[in-house]
C-alpha cells in the first residue's frame, strides 16, 4: 500500500494469498472426490437399470436363469411388507421414546435411553440380524418375514427416537406452559399441542429412517432369507429387493446381473424419493420456524 511495505513482505503476502487459493482449490477437489462416486453410481444404476426394468420385471415371478425373463414382483411385495411391519413395530416405540426423552427425560432413564439410542444408531446392521436370528429364526425353526422386520425395527427405532426428540425440543417451552396453565394434562399437552407443532419434523425422521431400512440387506440375509415364490405368510421366508440385488449380482448369470441393476434402480428410486421428500419437507419447516 505504501513504501513502508518492503518487497519481501509484499512477496510474502502474495505467497500467502496464493496458498489461500491453492487450498480452496484442494477443498474443491475433495468435494469432487465425494460427488463423483455419487454421480457415477447414479449414472450406472439409471443407465443400465432403465434398459432392464420392464412391466414383466415389476409384475411377474422370477424364472430360473436358464429360462430367462421373469421378474421381481414377489421381492417388491416382500420389501414393502417387511419394511411396513418394521414400521408398525418401530414407530410407536421410537416416537414414544423420543417423547419421553424430550419431555420427561431429565433423569437416569431418559439419559440412558438417549445415550443408548445414539449408540444403537451406529449398531452394525448385521448384528441386528444376528439378534433376530437367535430370537426368532432359531426359536421358530425357520426363516420368516417377521424376523426380518424385527431386525429392521432394531435399526429403525433409534433413528426415529433421536429425530423425534430433536423435533420436540424445537417446540418453544412457552407453548407447553400455556397448555399447563390451562390445566391441560401432560398427555393432552404433548399429544395435542407439542406433537402437532413438531409433526413435520417427526414425519421427516420417520421417512429418513424408512429409507434407511428399506435399503438394508445384511440383517435380512438370515432372517427374511429369500424365496422364488409369492410370500405365503409373515411367518415364512420372503424375497426382498435388497437381498435379491445381492444374490443376483454374485450369481454367474449375465441375465441375472441385468436384473440386479434393474432392481437397484427400483430400490434407489424408492430410497431417494423418500429422502428428497423428507428433506424438502424438513427444509421448508426449518425455514418457516426461523422465519420471523
Amino acid at each position: 500500500m505504501d513504501t513502508a511495505s518492503a518487497p519481501p513482505r509484499a512477496l510474502r503476502l502474495r505467497l500467502r494469498h496464493l496458498r489461500d487459493r491453492l487450498l480452496v482449490a484442494l477443498c474443491l477437489v475433495a468435494l469432487a472426490l465425494a460427488v463423483i462416486p455419487l454421480v457415477w453410481v447414479l449414472w450406472e444404476v439409471v443407465g443400465v437399470g432403465v434398459r432392464h426394468v420392464s412391466w414383466e420385471f415389476l409384475t411377474t415371478l422370477p424364472q430360473p436363469p436358464t429360462v430367462g425373463g421373469g421378474g421381481w414382483a414377489n421381492a417388491i411385495v416382500g420389501s414393502v411388507v417387511v419394511v411396513g411391519m418394521a414400521m408398525v413395530m418401530g414407530v410407536p416405540v421410537g416416537v414414544a421414546t423420543g417423547i419421553y426423552m424430550s419431555e420427561y427425560g431429565d433423569n437416569l432413564l431418559g439419559k440412558s435411553a438417549r445415550f443408548l439410542s445414539e449408540v444403537l444408531a451406529g449398531l452394525p446392521s448385521i448384528v441386528a440380524g444376528i439378534v433376530a436370528y437367535g430370537l426368532i429364526v432359531v426359536t421358530m425353526g425357520r426363516f420368516s418375514a417377521v424376523s426380518g422386520s424385527a431386525a429392521l425395527a432394531l435399526l429403525f427405532i433409534p433413528i426415529v427416537a433421536i429425530t423425534t426428540q430433536e423435533a420436540l425440543k424445537m417446540v418453544p417451552g412457552h407453548q407447553r406452559e400455556a397448555s399447563f396453565a390451562l390445566g391441560v394434562s401432560e398427555a393432552a399437552t404433548t399429544l395435542r399441542v407439542v406433537l402437532p407443532a413438531a409433526m413435520g419434523n417427526v414425519l421427516t425422521g420417520v421417512m429418513i429412517a424408512t429409507a434407511r431400512i428399506a435399503g438394508e440387506t445384511a440383517p435380512l440375509l438370515f432372517t427374511a432369507f429369500n424365496s422364488r415364490y409369492w410370500m405365503e405368510g409373515v411367518d415364512r421366508p420372503t424375497a426382498t429387493i435388497p437381498v435379491n440385488i445381492y444374490s443376483y449380482a454374485i450369481s454367474p448369470f449375465e441375465h441375472w446381473h441385468q436384473q440386479a441393476w434393474a432392481g437397484a434402480l427400483v430400490l434407489l428410486a424408492m430410497v431417494l424419493a423418500l429422502n428428497v421428500a423428507a428433506r424438502t419437507l424438513w427444509a421448508r419447516r426449518a425455514r418457516f420456524m426461523a422465519g420471523d
Binding site: L31, G215, W261
Partner: peptide
C-alpha cells in the same frame, strides 16, 4: 444448502447398491 443436500444423498444410497457398483464398475 444444495451441496449439503448432495453430500447427504450420498449417505442415503443403500450399501448393496454401492456393492453392485463395486463388483461391476
Amino acid at each position: 444448502d444444495p451441496l449439503i443436500f448432495v453430500v447427504e444423498l450420498l449417505a442415503a444410497v443403500p450399501s448393496v447398491v454401492f456393492g453392485l457398483w463395486g463388483i461391476f464398475v
